[in-house]
Design a protein around this nucleic acid. Structure first.
Lengths: 333, 333
DNA sequence: TTGTAGGCGTTATCAA
DNA sequence: TTGATAACGCCTACAA
């Protein structure tokens, strides 16, 4: 790797001049600039980011802490964040914690060691002690779908409670009266908020739902949960995520029920698979792209030390083929 | 951020001693070590990776170049690579090119600037000029599902040609004689190899398939392609990926056909959605995890300058519900 | 067993 | 308009 000194030697200039050319700062004669630029091209010179960071303090790196990349929700989120960060000149350091506090601690150490300019955290771990270390080091943090109790950190999220209400509302409007909720993972605050939203809206209609919460969020675990909770007479199932809802569809069909003939199912997220599955899933869509863009904008605001207005993140009901009017006439009571 | 000097001052030692403690190198008295370690803990000191790299040359960073993270295949691959790299002490710099040569060039510059110790490339772009820059800078490269013509780079991939044969074999064994292939994206060498494998095996049985290749690989594009190619009398459809196969199932059902009653469908990859969809998809599974682990092992071998034996990456037929015996008796001719 | 000092590649200050 | 030089944080000869 050639250094700024090699360029200086080849162009017959000093390192200071080369630095000025690279950074477009200060005065450089056109002829000198041309010589330097030629030398840079000839040697395929690339500035050493480590050395640069050591001088200037800014690393132009941002940590992105997520539980995983191999599930669609976080894969999509990571994609949006990475693209948006790179567009603004930042390199993403993606950290998959696998929901392990231990891993998370190691990643935070690494992020401190790399002198990241900021952190985007979608981690689902409750303990915010690790993030305290970042705050202590003056690293700004933006939480996705999570807050940091006691820490000065911005949080970007849709209104999950309202999302829960929307799911209930849609099924109530179709005449449903007997509900089940499949909620997983139970430790996720957004999931909890959606369940609360559903319960609130049903209570307003004088109804209550059978609620089943599960620890794991994989397809098989959700299907087992759904099979347990779906008793005779139930006509509406609310999944707190698309995966949970798709699992509920499988459970219903496995029990010999038809969807949406016998039972309606609604999900949340609007992941691509909501369209792949048959019947295609009715769901409440979150604007994942906008959430990611907004989170990056907020973080850049914190890094630059100036407030950025928080934009609205609207939810949207997406009607597909898993919900329909209740089959029997309205149930008494 | 505290530096090694702050630690030295607090522990009443010199920076050299602190460095020795941190790196477990040279002689340090137990008492001194204890004082230094206490100071490190008290100040939550983290070594500055940039400074370290400048001294030692090794950055402990590896570039991971992918077309995207928001499609399951690459999301899973990125997850495996990131976890395996971090386990070995490397930080992944994930780069989503969006299949743009322009973006890729920018990312390669960034990787050079960050002095990465190696690069894992799953990019689908043909042009290897950008990778030449890495080679010139002495950065080892491992390709996933791709080679680098003219460049000394290792490549890790399953035998896609054999995978094509497996798909054809399974359907032939079920008595099918009239085939279609939905192949996308057409520019992907693995996809091309699978198509070739299918054609070869069918030719051996004296048969040929209707082959439709598409530029785009999204669900909608594949469904359109499938609808075009599925003519009356066809009993078997081979998707070169699970997405293509799932789209073919949708197309068939949209045409009033039953799967697998009227038409059998098989895919390739065995992504999680192969199990979500109804009917669940029969497919050929690639060992994604093992591919990722193997790729990282190969890269670490290149970085360390010692050959690592390449392990076999077996494919596996996964029987689910989209393939069955041909409905009518064997077709004459 | 511990300390001193030089240099890695940059940028920024100051002088020329 | 350009150049010499100090400093960032760390590691490692070399000296003590």
């Amino acid at each position: 790797m050639s250094s700024i000194r090699d360029i200086a030697a080849r162009a017959g200039a000093s390192v200071a001049t080369v630095s000025r050319v690279i950074n477009h700062s200060g005065y450089v004669a056109a002829a000198t600039r041309a010589r330097v630029e030629r030398a840079i091209a000839e040697l395929d010179y690339t500035p050493n980011a480590g050395a640069r960071r050591m001088r200037s303090g800014a690393s132009w790196m941002v940590g992105v802490v997520l539980p995983a990349l191999d599930v669609p929700f976080f894969g999509i989120m990571a994609h949006v964040l990475e693209r948006e960060l790179f567009r603004r000149g930042y390199q993403a350091l993606i950290c998959c914690t696998d929901e392990s506090a231990d891993q998370e601690a190691r990643y935070i150490s690494m992020l401190l060691s790399q002198q990241v300019d900021g952190v985007l955290a979608a981690s689902v771990l409750e303990d915010s002690r690790q993030y305290q270390r970042l705050v202590d080091a003056g690293v700004p943090i933006v939480g996705l779908d999570r807050g940091f109790p006691g820490l000065a950190a911005v949080s970007v999220a849709v209104d999950h409670h309202a999302g829960g209400r929307m799911m209930a509302e849609h099924l109530l409007a179709l005449g449903h009266r007997r509900f089940a909720v499949i909620g997983a993972p139970r430790h996720s605050p957004p999931v909890q908020a959606r369940v609360l939203g559903v319960e609130k809206r049903l209570a307003e209609a004088g109804l209550a739902a059978r609620v089943a919460l599960g620890d794991a969020h994989d397809f098989d675990a959700c299907r087992v949960l759904a099979a347990q909770v779906m008793t005779k007479g139930l006509t509406a199932v609310i999944g707190t995520t698309d995966i949970a809802a798709i699992a509920a569809v499988h459970a219903a069909i496995g029990m010999g029920l038809s969807v949406p003939g016998d039972v309606s199912v609604i999900g949340f997220d609007d992941l691509p698979e909501a369209r792949y599955v048959l019947p295609a899933l009715t769901t409440v869509a979150q604007p994942l792209r906008e959430i990611g863009v907004q989170a990056v904008a907020q973080l850049c605001g914190l890094i630059a030390g100036q407030a950025v207005p928080m934009e609205a993140l609207p939810l949207r009901l997406v009607l597909r083929d898993t919900t329909g009017p209740v089959a029997e006439g309205p149930v008494a009571g």
